[in-house]
Design a protein around this nucleic acid. Sequence first.
RNA 1: GGAGAGGUGGGUGAGUGGCUUAAACCAGCAGUUUGCUAAACUGCCGUGCUCUUUUGUACCGGGGGUUCGAAUCCCCCCCUCUCCGCCA
Length: 424
Amino acid sequence: MLDIHDIRTSKALVIQRLQKRHFNNAAESVERLLVLDQQRKTAQLSVDSTAAQLNLLTKQIGQLMQQGKREEVALVREQTTTLKIAMKTLVPQLQACEKALQHALYELPNLPNAEVPEGKSSADNELVYQSSQVPINNAAQLPHWELARQYDLVDFELGNKITGAGFPVYKGRGARLQRALVNFFLDEAQHAGYEEIQPPIVVNEASAHGTGQLPDKEGQMYQLKDTTFYLIPTAEVPLTNLYRGDILSQTVLPIKNVAYTPCFRREAGSWGTHVRGLNRLHQFDKVELVQIALPEKSYGALQEMCAYVRYLLEKLELPYRVLKLCGGDLGFTAAFTYDLEVWAVGQQRWLEVSSISNFEAYQTHRMQLRYRDEHHRTQFPHTLNGSALALPRIVAALLENNQTASGIRIPPILHPYTGFKTIA
RNA sequence: GGAGAGGUGGGUGAGUGGCUUAAACCAGCAGUUUGCUAAACUGCCGUGCUCUUUUGUACCGGGGGUUCGAAUCCCCCCCUCUCCGCCA
């Protein structure tokens, strides 16, 4: 959520930034917001001043009662009635104004940072880095779903039977490989200074609100029947909401948390081509990093997170590239995002395995997460998160890129975790 | 699933209709003093809106009601805890 104060004071900049992400009717939305804000202010003032008069009279009555001046009490009571009647219309007016303003604020996405490249779609994202050796398919190299079947690592049909499409069953060395990756990612994150958290994978509405999944985007989440609980689409939701509503001491920043969780996504409407095998699932595993940082240090933290995820990919010996998302491709709540993609030789495709974003103060405004600065004032810290990493596509790339005539080679860094060096 | 208790400021916890933003204690912050593995004393110490400030106003789980006036009385809802049952 954007800060209404900022919108008030730097309207032109807000509009310009919203246009950068190709947000429809940016100028109109902002103008409407300012009108709503003004209405809210006016309503607030009339409520407050009426309440002030009422409180004054009420106090008088108390005093007069003690002095036993009955007839004067009756007189003052008369006056309160008119004010009370006025309040009956003023208060709902104010509430309506507040609600309208709140809703309008929720509808505005975050402002892209100044460094975000111009562009409309994923085609306009800026290539920041690409591994020098990107293998070309030699026609004998299979996509991972073939390999998964050949070595009996993932059973998609069994998943269909138990649950449905997008819920694969990992078996034997496939399951072991998953667990190895989770442990590898968690161990590395700990070394990089992240505290491990095991959060609930079911969250309430307030949490879904805090990180921006609600309102309006409930289509991406599974809701538990007869409840207002949701299965998390990413550990970002419970991790960031750990601090919802808190006023932190500046000295605890930056907070660095990591969690492994399964993630659940309905992906309503996006089912179809290009989603074969492990490419897009309803349930998948992910290790997620979250940082809460001082505003002036958040972009340093973003660079640090990006460097860390690149380190992981290099340890896994996967060819990858780094993209800076353009304004039009940026997620609703993000101010700046790096996408990391690995090359899957069997499919001749780049697969997104990590998205590292700085949300600046957008989420902290929403969840009223603040810290106290050296002048004892409350300020909004920045939140960041990034996958480190999303499992299924890493598995897909490992299988495809490391396939040989004699089996699938496991990168050495994982050997202590898998207990095997090849899948043959 | 059955029964009961309770939700007050960072924590503990007083407060049963006006003098309560709310006692007291702890924690925290600032300072003074002594000196030593800390203590004593003094002051400050909730958040939002309004906003240069003051003032004003709202908030004692949420919503509604009674009243000139509600943390306090009434109704509904939510949540937490305890005991029993079942159970990983």
